[in-house]
Design a protein around this nucleic acid. Structure first.
Lengths: 344, 344
DNA sequence: TTGTATGCGTTATCAG
DNA sequence: CTGATAACGCATACAA
């Protein structure tokens, strides 16, 4: 590894001058020296040592990306199609802006904090973080943070969140199902926190609009690993008989369940309708194609980086709560019960 | 940020002693001092500065992961299901072993090299790298490298590669198609380099076993962006009339094409059979479920990290060319033409 | 315009 | 057992 000092010695000048040329402080250096240095820079393929730079400048050029959701050490959250699209767009934007990315996918918030501090990361993107954990991070890490898909009491703390019209999306989807004559709708969620909770609110509001009262037992929580266990799938299968529609909080759940139900001989959407959320590739590929709530995941990632870099550069943030729009995408996984006999 | 010096001052001892305690060099420190230091370490939540460490130790604890395949700056290679599963397993293993991961997804090999050098990355995992690029990396980067899914003239250079029985997989799949009576088979590949090329070899060998001669026009190369362009899909649709089966080099291509063809009214597998490669989630979810060649992508990632860390630790590598097994997974996307009339 | 000196946080060497 | 000192590579304040 060639260093600035090496090159300075080779040219018989000081390291400062070389450093100045590297940083384009060419006003302080004679034209002739600039040329000599630049020539050598080329020849040597000089690459700066980022550890040394970080040390002097107290910044690292690293953006940290922390994903919450890995329950178990070998749970592969990155493989989830939603996260992989998101990560891809974030990585592309970070690189395009000349930064580096480090991913943390542990649920251990202490480990996350240590990692972030140990690298002196310039900014942090937190995905789906719970409020308590956010507070913990905030208390130790003082540089800019952008949240993605977080919901927290806004009055407690100021923060930037790149989110989605989750409530609106669930509201519209539920309304669509109701219009199509569905009255017994199960709502399938990961948990009752954050995004899924807000979607459930939208779901409830739509039901209320039709004078229906949401029942607690219609809320089906998908616990980690459930979709891999035959017994829990079996149970969902039996419970499905009480419903005409399964409204899922992700395309992934919808597709996986449709798949299983299909194998059990359930006709979709004749026997049971399905809806998803996200509009990822899988929703187009699954048969019947999935009616879902579309969101622009790539834009979510890109925007979060854009905001974070603004904050890092000390620019004023005008909008602290971005909510990207949703759009209903009608495909073929919902039966029209209202017009009975017509489409059977 | 609290530093070692800070703590040393607080305790009225030297930084060296604190450092020794941190590194468990407790034999050189009195029991009493050890306890005092450890207590303070706890209280202060001391986190080491990795930049400083990297500088002195000439190592970074970072593993670099370079993905080849991004053709365009905003092409999202991480979103590809194969890569996302692979990345997820690599990240999990790297973290489990106490290292950090940095991802590079650019096709610009010079940029990759600069990034790797600037961070003084301890080891590198290269996915699907071409031989020429590998040579370039090797010439500048002197630390351990593990390749995934690379094929290169073995005699030229010694290297570790974690690969797959690609030829065998394609051979078996082609044989399966031939057994089912297919004779006009199109082979759909990304390119004619590396993995896809080897698979094509297997394909050819199977054809030869049936006394068939592979024709050049039966090799359909999927260029980047083709699957998003209506015109090229249209063309594939017209060309499909010459075939009874489309043998694809990835589940992703198979699923995307099936999807399009389905919309155009093609009955699968009655009119046209499909096979994939990888056995990812998508192959189970698509309808009809995809007959494919299964590989253990997670294991591939885990193994590559295991090998790399062995090399970093200076251990002897006994096996330089790992080929993970493949397995034919029969689902419903291939028609049995041989038993004509039976399944129609 | 150029060079010298200093410090960033850590570790290693070596002397006490 | 403990501590002073130098070194890693770079950037900056300041002196020349």
């Amino acid at each position: 590894m060639i260093t600035i000092k090496n090159m300075a010695d080779m040219l018989g000048i000081s390291a400062t001058t070389v450093s100045n040329v590297i940083h384009g402080k060419t006003s302080e250096v004679s034209q002739k020296t600039v040329e000599r240095v630049e020539k050598l820079l080329q020849e040597c393929d000089y690459v700066p040592n980022n550890s040394a730079r970080s040390l002097t400048q107290n910044r690292s050029n690293i953006i940290g990306l922390a994903l919450r959701g890995r329950k178990d050490k070998y749970d592969n959250i990155i493989a989830d199609p939603f996260f992989s699209v998101l990560i891809g767009s974030i990585e592309a934007e970070i690189r395009a802006q000349g930064y580096f990315m480090m991913i943390y996918s542990s649920d251990d918030i202490g480990e996350l904090i240590r990692n972030v501090l140990t690298w002196n990361v310039d900014g942090l993107i937190l995905v789906g973080m719970l409020h308590d954990d956010f507070i913990k991070v905030k208390s130790r890490y003082k540089k800019p943070i952008v949240l993605i898909d977080s919901y927290a009491p806004r009055d407690i703390m100021n923060y930037v969140n790149i989110g989605l019209e989750d409530e609106q999306g669930a509201y519209e989807m539920t309304n669509y199902l109701l219009e199509k004559g569905h009255r017994r709708i199960a709502f399938l969620a990961d948990n009752m926190e954050g995004v899924d909770y807000i979607r459930y609110i939208g779901h409830q509001k739509a039901l209320a609009g039709y004078g229906l009262k949401p029942k607690e037992e219609d809320l089906l929580i998908i616990r980690p690993g459930m979709l891999e266990r035959e017994s829990s799938m079996e149970e969902l299968y039996f419970r499905s008989k009480d419903y005409t529609a399964f409204m899922c909080c992700s395309d992934y759940y919808a597709a996986t369940l449709m798949n299983y139900f299909c194998d059990r001989g359930v006709e979709i959407p004749q026997d049971l309708s399905f809806t998803g959320f996200d509009d990822l590739l899988i929703s187009k590929v699954v048969r019947p194609a999935l009616t879902t709530v579309k969101q622009d995941v790539s834009e979510k990632g890109r925007l979060s980086v854009e905001y974070l870099l603004k904050m890092i550069q000390g620019l004023e943030i005008e909008k602290w709560d971005v909510k990207l729009p949703v759009e209903l995408v009608i495909r073929s996984s919902v039966r029209d019960i209202a017009r009975q006999g017509v489409d059977e």
